[in-house]
Protein backbone atom coordinates (compact mmCIF):
# COMPACT_ATOMS: atom_id res chain seq x y z
CA UNK A 1 0.00 0.00 0.00
CA UNK A 2 1.38 3.39 -0.94
CA UNK A 3 0.22 6.91 -0.26
CA UNK A 4 -1.94 8.30 -3.06
CA UNK A 5 -3.37 11.50 -1.62
CA UNK A 6 -1.90 13.10 1.44
CA UNK A 7 -2.87 16.32 3.21
CA UNK A 8 -1.01 17.85 6.13
CA UNK A 9 -2.51 20.80 8.02
CA UNK A 10 -4.36 22.07 4.96
CA UNK A 11 -6.49 25.18 5.45
CA UNK A 12 -8.59 27.21 3.04
CA UNK A 13 -10.89 30.25 3.11
CA UNK A 14 -12.86 31.88 0.29
CA UNK A 15 -13.14 35.07 2.31
CA UNK A 16 -12.13 35.56 5.94
CA UNK A 17 -14.31 32.73 7.20
CA UNK A 18 -12.33 29.47 7.05
CA UNK A 19 -13.90 26.64 5.07
CA UNK A 20 -11.20 24.12 5.95
CA UNK A 21 -8.94 24.18 8.98
CA UNK A 22 -5.94 21.94 9.68
CA UNK A 23 -7.07 19.08 7.47
CA UNK A 24 -4.76 16.06 7.60
CA UNK A 25 -5.26 12.58 6.13
CA UNK A 26 -3.48 9.99 4.05
CA UNK A 27 -5.41 7.95 1.48
CA UNK A 28 -3.69 4.70 0.53
CA UNK A 29 -3.69 2.96 -2.83
CA UNK A 30 -6.79 0.76 -3.21
CA UNK A 31 -8.87 2.62 -0.59
CA UNK A 32 -12.55 3.23 -1.36
CA UNK A 33 -13.30 6.30 0.74
CA UNK A 34 -16.78 7.67 1.32
CA UNK A 35 -16.56 11.36 2.20
CA UNK A 36 -19.51 12.43 4.28
CA UNK A 37 -20.43 15.44 6.38
CA UNK A 38 -23.02 18.17 6.77
CA UNK A 39 -23.90 20.64 4.00
CA UNK A 40 -21.35 23.44 3.95
CA UNK A 41 -18.86 21.25 5.80
CA UNK A 42 -16.24 21.76 3.08
CA UNK A 43 -16.31 18.35 1.34
CA UNK A 44 -16.35 19.73 -2.23
CA UNK A 45 -13.86 22.44 -1.33
CA UNK A 46 -11.53 19.81 0.14
CA UNK A 47 -11.48 17.90 -3.14
CA UNK A 48 -10.92 21.12 -5.10
CA UNK A 49 -8.01 22.09 -2.86
CA UNK A 50 -6.51 18.60 -3.18
CA UNK A 51 -6.68 18.91 -6.99
CA UNK A 52 -5.25 22.42 -7.04
CA UNK A 53 -8.50 23.99 -8.25
CA UNK A 54 -8.47 26.17 -5.14
CA UNK A 55 -5.26 27.32 -3.54
CA UNK A 56 -5.08 26.37 0.12
CA UNK A 57 -2.36 26.54 2.77
CA UNK A 58 -0.54 23.48 4.00
CA UNK A 59 1.11 20.47 2.41
CA UNK A 60 -0.56 18.38 -0.29
CA UNK A 61 1.00 15.40 -2.01
CA UNK A 62 -0.35 13.38 -4.91
CA UNK A 63 1.37 10.03 -5.39
CA UNK A 64 4.16 11.25 -3.13
CA UNK A 65 4.79 14.37 -5.21
CA UNK A 66 4.03 17.87 -3.92
CA UNK A 67 0.95 19.27 -5.67
CA UNK A 68 2.88 22.11 -7.33
CA UNK A 69 5.29 19.70 -8.99
CA UNK A 70 2.73 17.02 -9.80
CA UNK A 71 2.20 16.47 -13.53
CA UNK A 72 0.97 12.88 -13.89
CA UNK A 73 -2.63 14.04 -14.21
CA UNK A 74 -3.60 11.01 -16.30
CA UNK A 75 -3.43 9.05 -13.03
CA UNK A 76 -6.38 11.02 -11.67
CA UNK A 77 -9.98 10.96 -12.88
CA UNK A 78 -12.30 13.69 -11.63
CA UNK A 79 -16.06 14.03 -11.84
CA UNK A 80 -17.44 17.28 -10.46
CA UNK A 81 -20.76 17.87 -8.74
CA UNK A 82 -22.21 20.04 -11.51
CA UNK A 83 -22.39 19.38 -15.24
CA UNK A 84 -20.09 21.86 -17.01
CA UNK A 85 -22.59 22.90 -19.67
CA UNK A 86 -25.17 25.26 -18.32
CA UNK A 87 -25.31 27.36 -21.46
CA UNK A 88 -27.02 26.22 -24.63
CA UNK A 89 -25.31 25.23 -27.86
CA UNK A 90 -21.81 24.22 -26.88
CA UNK A 91 -21.30 22.16 -30.01
CA UNK A 92 -19.27 19.17 -28.88
CA UNK A 93 -20.27 15.53 -29.25
CA UNK A 94 -20.23 13.09 -26.34
CA UNK A 95 -17.22 11.41 -27.96
CA UNK A 96 -15.31 14.73 -28.06
CA UNK A 97 -16.14 15.29 -24.40
CA UNK A 98 -14.68 11.91 -23.44
CA UNK A 99 -11.61 12.67 -25.56
CA UNK A 100 -10.96 15.71 -23.34
CA UNK A 101 -9.99 13.28 -20.59
CA UNK A 102 -6.83 12.31 -22.47
CA UNK A 103 -3.78 14.49 -22.04
CA UNK A 104 -1.14 13.14 -24.41
CA UNK A 105 -1.96 15.43 -27.35
CA UNK A 106 -2.87 19.11 -27.38
CA UNK A 107 -3.57 19.78 -31.05
CA UNK A 108 -6.52 19.10 -33.30
CA UNK A 109 -5.66 15.55 -34.46
CA UNK A 110 -7.04 12.33 -32.91
CA UNK A 111 -5.11 9.06 -33.08
CA UNK A 112 -6.65 5.61 -33.57
CA UNK A 113 -5.30 4.61 -30.15
CA UNK A 114 -7.09 7.54 -28.53
CA UNK A 115 -10.35 6.64 -30.25
CA UNK A 116 -10.04 3.07 -28.99
CA UNK A 117 -9.57 4.37 -25.43
CA UNK A 118 -12.59 6.66 -25.83
CA UNK A 119 -14.83 3.84 -27.06
CA UNK A 120 -13.62 1.53 -24.28
CA UNK A 121 -14.52 4.14 -21.63
CA UNK A 122 -17.90 4.75 -23.27
CA UNK A 123 -18.51 1.00 -23.35
CA UNK A 124 -17.75 0.81 -19.61
CA UNK A 125 -20.31 3.50 -18.81
CA UNK A 126 -22.86 2.27 -21.35
CA UNK A 127 -22.71 5.51 -23.33
CA UNK A 128 -21.34 4.23 -26.65
CA UNK A 129 -24.73 4.86 -28.29
CA UNK A 130 -24.40 8.60 -27.54
CA UNK A 131 -20.94 8.97 -29.09
CA UNK A 132 -22.01 11.16 -32.03
CA UNK A 133 -24.73 13.09 -30.21
CA UNK A 134 -24.31 16.67 -29.08
CA UNK A 135 -23.47 16.56 -25.37
CA UNK A 136 -25.93 19.32 -24.54
CA UNK A 137 -28.82 17.38 -26.11
CA UNK A 138 -28.39 14.46 -23.69
CA UNK A 139 -30.36 14.22 -20.46
CA UNK A 140 -28.58 15.20 -17.23
CA UNK A 141 -28.22 11.53 -16.26
CA UNK A 142 -26.79 10.63 -19.68
CA UNK A 143 -24.42 13.60 -19.47
CA UNK A 144 -23.25 12.40 -16.07
CA UNK A 145 -22.43 8.96 -17.49
CA UNK A 146 -20.52 10.55 -20.38
CA UNK A 147 -18.59 12.65 -17.87
CA UNK A 148 -17.79 9.48 -15.91
CA UNK A 149 -16.43 8.02 -19.17
CA UNK A 150 -14.28 11.16 -19.50
CA UNK A 151 -12.98 10.60 -15.96
CA UNK A 152 -12.21 6.94 -16.76
CA UNK A 153 -10.71 7.31 -20.24
CA UNK A 154 -7.13 7.79 -19.08
CA UNK A 155 -7.44 4.63 -16.94
CA UNK A 156 -6.75 6.59 -13.75
CA UNK A 157 -5.34 5.09 -10.59
CA UNK A 158 -7.49 7.43 -8.49
CA UNK A 159 -11.10 8.43 -9.10
CA UNK A 160 -12.35 11.56 -7.32
CA UNK A 161 -16.12 11.85 -7.51
CA UNK A 162 -18.28 14.62 -6.08
CA UNK A 163 -21.83 13.39 -5.51
CA UNK A 164 -21.84 11.65 -8.89
CA UNK A 165 -25.12 9.77 -8.56
CA UNK A 166 -27.58 12.56 -7.81
CA UNK A 167 -28.81 12.85 -11.43
CA UNK A 168 -28.93 9.12 -12.14
CA UNK A 169 -32.03 6.93 -12.20
CA UNK A 170 -32.18 3.72 -10.14
CA UNK A 171 -30.81 1.42 -12.85
CA UNK A 172 -28.02 3.79 -13.83
CA UNK A 173 -27.11 4.31 -10.19
CA UNK A 174 -26.84 0.57 -9.60
CA UNK A 175 -24.71 0.18 -12.74
CA UNK A 176 -22.61 3.14 -11.65
CA UNK A 177 -21.80 1.79 -8.17
CA UNK A 178 -21.23 -1.73 -9.52
CA UNK A 179 -18.72 -0.28 -11.98
CA UNK A 180 -16.93 1.63 -9.21
CA UNK A 181 -16.81 -1.51 -7.05
CA UNK A 182 -15.43 -3.49 -9.99
CA UNK A 183 -12.75 -0.86 -10.66
CA UNK A 184 -11.80 -0.84 -6.99
CA UNK A 185 -11.72 -4.62 -6.55
CA UNK A 186 -10.42 -5.75 -9.96
CA UNK A 187 -8.04 -2.93 -10.89
CA UNK A 188 -7.25 -1.67 -7.39
CA UNK A 189 -8.45 1.81 -8.36
CA UNK A 190 -8.48 4.20 -5.40
CA UNK A 191 -11.83 5.96 -5.08
CA UNK A 192 -12.81 9.07 -3.14
CA UNK A 193 -16.53 9.63 -3.28
CA UNK A 194 -18.54 12.45 -1.73
CA UNK A 195 -21.96 11.12 -0.92
CA UNK A 196 -24.99 11.68 1.25
CA UNK A 197 -26.37 8.27 0.33
CA UNK A 198 -24.52 6.22 2.93
CA UNK A 199 -27.06 3.42 2.87
CA UNK A 200 -26.58 2.61 -0.79
CA UNK A 201 -22.82 2.95 -1.11
CA UNK A 202 -21.99 1.85 2.43
CA UNK A 203 -21.62 -1.77 1.37
CA UNK A 204 -18.87 -0.89 -1.14
CA UNK A 205 -16.89 1.63 0.88
CA UNK A 206 -13.82 0.54 2.85
CA UNK A 207 -13.28 3.79 4.74
CA UNK A 208 -15.30 6.78 5.84
CA UNK A 209 -14.01 10.33 6.03
CA UNK A 210 -16.23 12.72 7.96
CA UNK A 211 -15.54 16.33 7.03
CA UNK A 212 -16.87 19.31 8.92
CA UNK A 213 -14.35 22.12 8.33
CA UNK A 214 -11.70 19.59 9.28
CA UNK A 215 -11.39 15.83 9.03
CA UNK A 216 -13.25 14.84 12.18
CA UNK A 217 -12.99 11.12 11.50
CA UNK A 218 -11.06 9.03 8.98
CA UNK A 219 -11.00 5.27 9.40
CA UNK A 220 -12.54 2.00 8.38
CA UNK A 221 -16.29 1.67 8.12
CA UNK A 222 -16.28 -0.81 10.99
CA UNK A 223 -14.60 1.72 13.26
CA UNK A 224 -17.03 4.35 12.09
CA UNK A 225 -20.18 2.29 12.39
CA UNK A 226 -19.56 0.19 15.45
CA UNK A 227 -17.90 2.59 17.81
CA UNK A 228 -20.19 4.42 20.20
CA UNK A 229 -17.33 6.70 21.11
CA UNK A 230 -16.96 7.79 17.50
CA UNK A 231 -20.70 8.44 17.25
CA UNK A 232 -20.58 10.62 20.35
CA UNK A 233 -17.58 12.46 19.02
CA UNK A 234 -19.14 13.14 15.66
CA UNK A 235 -22.46 14.39 16.99
CA UNK A 236 -25.96 14.33 15.54
CA UNK A 237 -25.14 14.07 11.87
CA UNK A 238 -22.89 11.02 12.22
CA UNK A 239 -25.33 9.34 14.63
CA UNK A 240 -28.04 9.93 12.04
CA UNK A 241 -25.83 8.30 9.39
CA UNK A 242 -25.21 5.26 11.56
CA UNK A 243 -28.91 4.97 12.47
CA UNK A 244 -29.76 5.28 8.78
CA UNK A 245 -27.38 2.45 7.92
CA UNK A 246 -28.78 0.22 10.65
CA UNK A 247 -32.46 0.98 10.25
CA UNK A 248 -32.55 0.77 6.48
CA UNK A 249 -31.06 -2.68 6.40
CA UNK A 250 -32.33 -4.09 9.71
CA UNK A 251 -28.77 -4.95 10.52
CA UNK A 252 -25.42 -3.36 9.92
CA UNK A 253 -25.03 -3.33 6.11
CA UNK A 254 -21.32 -2.97 6.47
CA UNK A 255 -20.88 -6.46 7.86
CA UNK A 256 -19.67 -7.62 11.24
CA UNK A 257 -21.43 -7.26 14.52
CA UNK A 258 -21.94 -4.05 16.36
CA UNK A 259 -20.35 -4.21 19.77
CA UNK A 260 -23.00 -1.91 21.18
CA UNK A 261 -26.30 -3.13 19.76
CA UNK A 262 -25.38 -6.68 18.88
CA UNK A 263 -26.80 -6.43 15.35
Amino acid sequence: MSSVLKAEKVSFAYTRVPVLENVSFDVQSGDYVGIIGPNGGGKTTLLKVMLGLERGRGKIELFGTPLKQFNAWHKIGYLAQKSPVSQARFPVSAQEVVLMGLTDHHGSGVSVGELKQVYAAMQQTNTRQYAGKIFHDLSIGQQQRVLLARALVSQPEVLILDEPSTALDGTSREMFFDLLAQLNQKYHTTILLITHDTGEVGKYISKFMYVDKTVVFFGTKEEFCHSKAVAEKLGAFAQHTIDHLHNQHGHCPLGGTCQECGK
Binding site: G52, L53, W73, Y78, A80, P84, L99, M100, G107
Partner: peptide, 24 residues
Protein backbone atom coordinates in the same frame (compact mmCIF):
# COMPACT_ATOMS: atom_id res chain seq x y z
CA UNK B 1 -2.06 28.52 -31.72
CA UNK B 2 -5.32 26.81 -32.67
CA UNK B 3 -3.47 24.09 -34.55
CA UNK B 4 -1.11 23.41 -31.64
CA UNK B 5 -3.53 23.78 -28.73
CA UNK B 6 -6.96 23.09 -30.24
CA UNK B 7 -7.86 20.41 -27.71
CA UNK B 8 -6.59 22.47 -24.77
CA UNK B 9 -8.61 25.51 -25.85
CA UNK B 10 -11.85 23.55 -26.39
CA UNK B 11 -11.39 21.62 -23.15
CA UNK B 12 -10.71 24.79 -21.13
CA UNK B 13 -13.66 26.47 -22.80
CA UNK B 14 -16.02 23.55 -22.12
CA UNK B 15 -15.04 22.76 -18.53
CA UNK B 16 -12.31 24.89 -17.00
CA UNK B 17 -11.94 23.02 -13.65
CA UNK B 18 -11.67 19.65 -15.40
CA UNK B 19 -9.14 21.07 -17.88
CA UNK B 20 -7.01 22.12 -14.90
CA UNK B 21 -7.08 18.55 -13.60
CA UNK B 22 -5.67 17.44 -16.97
CA UNK B 23 -2.63 19.61 -16.34
CA UNK B 24 -3.71 22.25 -18.87
Amino acid sequence: LLRLFYRDFTSACFDEPFAKTRGI
